[in-house]
């Protein structure tokens, strides 16, 4: 884990540089880690070129980078360039929303940069990895896209792979947030909606009921609602199991009936308590839901099948 900085930076050079020079080394390593390749004039330090203005008030570190694929092109003309000045503000305090939101706090980084190479190592690699995977990778992606180069990114993966990744999300909220990311992703989730929500049901219950279910999303959402409304949660769980997993019920029939009875009593009591409170509407809505599911097993009309989808 911690060897990332070692891969790109020579410890002796690190020791020889001042804090600004070391920061340059970190950034250089981040660019190389992201997949960039240095381009053009090589500064004597082999890292970043240091320039200061005439009055010596500003210090500027610079280096040119390019995508390796671009250097392999035979003809260099027609190359779209991304000119980016990556301004690193070393701030003393406060927060600000940068264009590229990487904030390095001078108070936090200067003591670390002053350390010897070995002592700065684990931290240095971490910063390098973060910068490399965020700002630098974003820039590389943009550069490649402008030049029509195939850079593998999440969106360029085949749909099956994207789905394989999305199936590993263990919370429905994460999947829903992915839908909000882009219309293309939303379409994909809608197309493969069955398998994605079925897997989420698995993550939730550690098994998937063996019965035929029309919409796994409905089932998942129903289980979410249970945890939203604690006063009737046990009640719904009973019915949910009845409609969803008969096999489960059969195996523990007697016990379940007993529990069911107790839970029902408990629910009635809480409902009575809650009468007139602002939660009442929620209770009523869930009751309605239970009635519809009760004794039906599968939902037949299309409108009720998509009931929870369109909320």
């Amino acid at each position: 884990m911690a060897s990332l900085l070692k891969k790109f930076v020579d410890p002796n050079q690190w020791e020889a540089e001042d804090i600004v020079g070391r920061l340059g080394m970190l950034l250089h390593a981040a660019f190389l880690f992201a997949g960039f390749q240095p381009y053009g004039a090589c500064p004597p330090s082999e890292h970043l070129l240091k320039q200061s203005d005439k009055a010596g008030r500003w210090l500027c570190l610079s280096r040119r980078y390019t995508a390796p694929e671009l250097t392999r092109r035979k003809r260099a003309d027609g190359v779209a360039l991304t000119y980016v000045a990556l301004l690193i503000f070393l701030i003393a305090n406060g927060d600000m929303e940068n264009i590229y939101n990487e904030i390095l706090d001078v108070a936090a980084i200067s003591p670390r940069l002053s350390r010897s190479f070995e002592a700065a190592e684990p931290w240095g690699s971490r910063v390098c990895r973060t910068l490399g995977n965020r700002v630098c990778w974003g820039l590389l992606d943009e550069l490649c896209r402008k030049n029509g180069l195939p850079l593998t990114s999440f969106m360029s993966l085949p749909d099956d792979l994207k789905i394989a990744i999305l199936k590993r999300l263990t919370d429905g909220k994460d999947l829903a947030r992915v839908e909000c990311v882009s219309a293309q992703l939303r379409l994909l989730v809608a197309e493969r909606h069955g398998e994605l929500w079925k897997t989420l049901c698995w993550w939730r219950w550690s098994h998937v009921p063996v019965v035929e279910v029309r919409s796994w999303k409905d089932m998942y959402m129903a289980s979410r609602r249970r945890s939203y409304v604690p006063s009737i949660s046990t009640h719904i769980r009973c019915w949910d199991l009845i409609s969803a997993s008969r096999s489960f019920l059969e195996s523990a029939k007697d016990q379940e009936q007993q529990q069911e009875h107790q839970k029902e009593q408990c629910t009635v009591a809480t409902r009575a308590e809650r009468k007139g409170s602002h939660r009442r509407q929620v209770v009523a809505r869930n009751d309605d839901y239970i009635k519809r599911r009760h004794g039906v097993g599968a939902i037949h009309s299309p409108s009720s099948r998509y009931r929870w989808n369109h909320r």
């Binding site: 990114s153 999440f154 990744i165 199936k167 590993r168 947030r177 992915v178 990311v181 882009s182």
Partner: peptide, 25 residues
């Protein structure tokens, strides 16, 4: 795949766009 999904978990849509450099269309 597990690693990539870890990079999505608990993130807002904006953060996911930033991490994966996805355009908001």
């Amino acid at each position: 795949c597990h690693k990539i999904s870890e990079m999505m978990k608990g993130k807002s849509p904006d953060q996911i766009r930033e991490v994966f450099n996805i355009k908001n269309d």
